[in-house]
Design a binder for these strands. Sequence first.
DNA 1: TTGTAAGCGTTATCAA
DNA 2: TTGATAACGCTTACAA
Lengths: 336, 336
Amino acid sequence: MTTIEDIAEEADVSPSTVSRALNNSSLIGEETRRKVKRIAREMNYKKNDLASGLVKGVGVGALGLIIPNISNPYYAELTRGVQDRANELGYGVFLGDTEASLEKERRFETLLRRKKVDGIILASATVNDPYLKELNNSSVPIMLISRISRELETNFIKVDDIKGGRLAVEHLVELGHEKIGFIGGPDDFSSAQDRRVGFEKVMKEHGLPINRSIVSHAQYTQEAGHNMASAYISKQDKFTAIFCANDIIALGAIEALERDGLVVPEDVSIVGYDNISYASLPRIMLTTVSQPIYTMGYDAAESLIDISENEKEQSIQRELTPKLVVRNTTRKPKSG
Amino acid sequence: MTTIEDIAEEADVSPSTVSRALNNSSLIGEETRRKVKRIAREMNYKKNDLASGLVKGVGVGALGLIIPNISNPYYAELTRGVQDRANELGYGVFLGDTEASLEKERRFETLLRRKKVDGIILASATVNDPYLKELNNSSVPIMLISRISRELETNFIKVDDIKGGRLAVEHLVELGHEKIGFIGGPDDFSSAQDRRVGFEKVMKEHGLPINRSIVSHAQYTQEAGHNMASAYISKQDKFTAIFCANDIIALGAIEALERDGLVVPEDVSIVGYDNISYASLPRIMLTTVSQPIYTMGYDAAESLIDISENEKEQSIQRELTPKLVVRNTTRKPKSG
DNA sequence: TTGTAAGCGTTATCAA
DNA sequence: TTGATAACGCTTACAA
């Protein structure tokens, strides 16, 4: 492996001069710079980020990305955004799929500290995460995606989930639905809370009754969607539509409905949330609320690197706007 | 941040003693070791892998994972396997989603070199990849997943794709199908080549004709599946089943078929390959050939770290066995 | 069994 | 504008 010293020898200058040339320092002659750069290229030199990071007291040039499940297309898309921007800026991304396991989360955190990452993007925080407090107090900057903490002042990029919830339910109401159910995510996620708020606001604004027996919080999983929808069916309470707080839940709900002989959308309309890749698959074609998830990841990486490199104190809090995507799982209710 | 020196001071020993205690060296007294470890824990010490890697002449404790598309559930699952094992062994995983872009691939490679990764897992090699040759000549060990090079002697873990192709087509033949089409992946991927070989072998063994106009290679994408299936339909050649070289292609094919008024599986049976998460979604329920993809990632990470840490020369070449998963997209042909 | 000192590849400070 | 030198935090001969 070529080092800065090899180049120095070859160029007949000192190592410090080489360093300056390569880092575009202003304290160097134009001619020397060009010569050194040429030689470096010829010798196929690659900077050793370990050494550089060590002496500069910074990391190796890497971001940590903590997500609950990479097999969920939502997080896959987020990851793409983060990675694209990070790579463009010369940073690597350490992926930490925690699978909602506290043990894995801890282990990954230790890992990140040891590797001296320059920033952490967290896409799995709960509203009052004790672990988050710890992270936030450490010296490495963090950025929350799509979920926020109600207790801590942190950087975040999210979508206006109240608005998103409104979009979904307004669509249903416009179609003529009145008996609308809701299946939410975990009630300690801000995203789940806000989507429900949006749901309730629209119902109230239209003078529609909210039937508590078909409104619930569960997990953001297909299984939860299946179970809750089954429960709703067995309760005999009539409903003609369900707003599901994410697409995976919606898929589970559709599965349960169809298993029971109900047809979507003829018998019941379904709206999801996220617009993950599943949603546009043939045979699925889910009506859903779309988040600019790739962009969120891309921007998060950029902001975090900016904060880290320039040691900015000011916090970044950005809220983007969701959009309704109408496909084939919603239509007018039969009776309406 | 606590350093080894802080601990040394606190424990009233030298830094080297602390290092020895923490690394479980044998050149140290049991008592000192315990004392040092206790103090280290109390001071919440985390080793700086940059410094450690630098002096040991190794990497920061990280693997690079190069894949074509993290939004493809196949690679998401692979990533989970790699990451789980790597994290367990104290390694991080740098994710490199290249999106089949040579530019991104190059950029990522430079990144990995600078970060001094300890090994690279490559899940996107073609049969005679020039870039692979370069990588293979460098000092960092590499491992190929699911696709191999026919030119280079490299480490790899893959599935027996000829066998997998056989499984798919035998299932179709047993059902009574005779006019069977094939939509393959890129013809310079070993996986695509082998699956086709399996297809052809079974056809020949059963004395079934191979109709070239419904046998083709394309991309491993939904769009390609859609286009090829559309082309087959328009050719007016009769077929009652298609073996698709991966699940995404299968999805595209189903879409095209149904758009044309054909019903799956009543009119035409479809078999996919990979058993990605899409395949088991309600309304999809694709018959497919399953690969132990998580395990492949898990084992790859383990082997690579083993090679790196023990500087093994012997190469690892492992072939796993695929399995047929019958769901709802295959059945007897109408006429049969 | 422990301590001293050198060195990994960079960057930054100071002097020239 | 350049060079010598120290330093980043750790490991490892070598000496004690």
